[in-house]
Amino acid sequence: MKTSELKNLRVAVIGAGYAGAAAARALTEAGAAVTVYEQASQIREVGAGIGLRPSSMAQFERWGIGGAIKAVSSPSDGFEILTADDHRIAREEWPEKSAYGETTHLIHRGDFIEALVGSLPTGMVRLGHKLDTITDHGGSATLGFTNGETATADLVIGADGIKSVVRERLFTDAQPVFAGEHAYRAVIDIADTFGMADDGDLRMFIGRGTKVYLLPLLHRGQVSFDVTALNADGTWAPAVTQDDIVATVQGFDERIVRMTEGLDMAAVNVRAVYDIEPVERWHTDSVVLIGDAAHAMCHHQGQGANSAILDAGALADALVAAGSVPDALAAFQATRKPVTDELQRISRHGWTEDELDDVFPGQKPGQVAATVQG
């Protein structure tokens, strides 16, 4: 699209999370007029750490925010896979380093969303706007919010996560799928990891039915500590005690057991893991899904946030290159959907058949739909 057309394009982004904030930044750089609608009354991200891959870091450099992201993250040379009792299985450098001239950076989720949203023009993000209705007119769409306000845009970007209202209203009413596992996450002092994360490498320890991840946040003097375990309880926010979590790491290196015993449960994020089935079509002529709204996936590959960032870049590129919004949305889906379909598929294969049979005899939890609770 011509620069003048992009400047006159009214874009509404639903959701100010990774996908929404990244899309807003990318489209602002391309010259579009963007408004972001966020249901929360304040921007706040819970959870722990994530890894931003070289391809994502290259996008940030393109958008002029590479320095801001690097200022609140730690570069990492590689990742290591180990047995539960701390014997190395493999160590690799992060892929894509040579292709993009960047390495992976490890960052706290809160710092990441603060840096992304902080890069947007003042007033672009409108808080307290929970989407209720969306009416697709073909060349535009009208949004209705629970606070009584409405807005019409030439392009609506549904970046409203795994429980996406945009997806449910226009594309599919299929509910998220329980992955048959829980994730327990906290940020702890690096001193409390007994030297197991001092060098900046991401480490994954593999036990039977349980994985433990140590993701160093060296710039903070902290480590993101994640225990992911098979569990049949699909409650969205399950009730879990410290004894429950300690029990899941029995048989792991004694230092990991001690880390778990020392957790402050008030600071532990506990959730059941869900993804969604691949969505057949991500767009109409004026509405498009990105990020988790389009392709929420399990976290075993560490690709959720990275996929959202690459979506944002690909969408902006498609709008610049195409002659119209419908053509751009079709090109965007053609570029990104094959990639995320495959990542969704791979991310469902984080466990052996024997491990699954221990908890789900005769079933495959990634294939069994469960209604989201809570």
Rank of each mutant, 00 (worst) to 15 (best):
residue 280 E to G: 07
residue 362 G to R: 08
residue 98 S to R: 09
residue 197 A to E: 15
residue 52 L to Q: 04
residue 124 M to Y: 01
residue 292 D to A: 12
residue 284 T to M: 14
residue 13 V to M: 07
residue 274 Y to N: 01
residue 353 E to N: 15
residue 12 A to T: 10
residue 255 R to I: 13
residue 289 L to D: 02
residue 171 F to R: 15
residue 315 L to H: 12
residue 366 G to C: 02
residue 231 N to F: 04
residue 60 F to Y: 06
residue 152 T to W: 04
residue 38 E to A: 05
residue 252 F to Q: 03
residue 42 Q to M: 02
residue 79 F to C: 05
residue 232 A to L: 08
residue 119 S to C: 04
residue 267 A to L: 09
residue 258 R to M: 12
residue 188 I to N: 11
residue 287 V to F: 13
residue 166 V to E: 06
residue 90 A to G: 02
residue 146 T to Y: 09
residue 361 P to E: 13
residue 233 D to V: 13
residue 254 E to Q: 15
residue 95 P to C: 01
residue 77 D to H: 06
residue 46 V to C: 01
residue 154 D to C: 12
residue 6 L to T: 02
residue 184 Y to D: 00
residue 285 D to W: 02
residue 365 P to A: 15
residue 238 P to F: 10
residue 85 D to L: 02
residue 202 L to D: 00
residue 264 D to R: 10
residue 110 G to S: 08
residue 19 A to V: 03
residue 191 A to W: 00
residue 3 T to P: 10
residue 112 F to R: 10
residue 312 A to F: 06
residue 208 R to V: 06
residue 286 S to N: 10
residue 195 G to H: 10
residue 271 R to E: 06
residue 355 E to I: 07
residue 119 S to E: 03
residue 51 G to F: 04
residue 177 V to A: 00
residue 372 V to G: 12
residue 294 A to R: 08
residue 45 E to I: 05
residue 210 T to K: 13
residue 113 I to V: 12
residue 90 A to S: 09
residue 188 I to H: 01
residue 147 N to A: 13
residue 165 V to T: 15
residue 62 R to Y: 01
residue 189 D to R: 11
residue 354 D to T: 13
residue 333 Q to S: 06
residue 299 H to S: 10
residue 108 H to F: 12
residue 123 G to H: 03
residue 185 R to F: 05
residue 207 G to R: 10
residue 303 Q to N: 00
residue 41 S to A: 08
residue 35 T to K: 13
residue 141 A to P: 11
residue 89 I to E: 02
residue 125 V to C: 04
residue 92 E to H: 15
residue 353 E to V: 14
residue 219 H to C: 05
residue 13 V to L: 06
residue 26 A to P: 03
residue 261 E to C: 05
residue 64 G to R: 09
residue 129 H to R: 15
residue 166 V to C: 07
residue 63 W to Q: 03
residue 348 R to A: 07
residue 359 V to T: 08
residue 45 E to R: 15
residue 104 T to G: 04
residue 33 A to H: 11
residue 318 A to P: 15
residue 327 D to R: 09
residue 147 N to H: 14
residue 7 K to V: 08
residue 38 E to K: 05
residue 157 I to R: 03
residue 41 S to I: 12
residue 153 A to F: 14
residue 342 E to V: 00
residue 231 N to S: 14
residue 224 S to N: 05
residue 180 G to I: 02
residue 158 G to N: 11
residue 43 I to R: 11
residue 140 S to I: 14
residue 129 H to P: 11
residue 214 L to V: 09
residue 365 P to I: 04
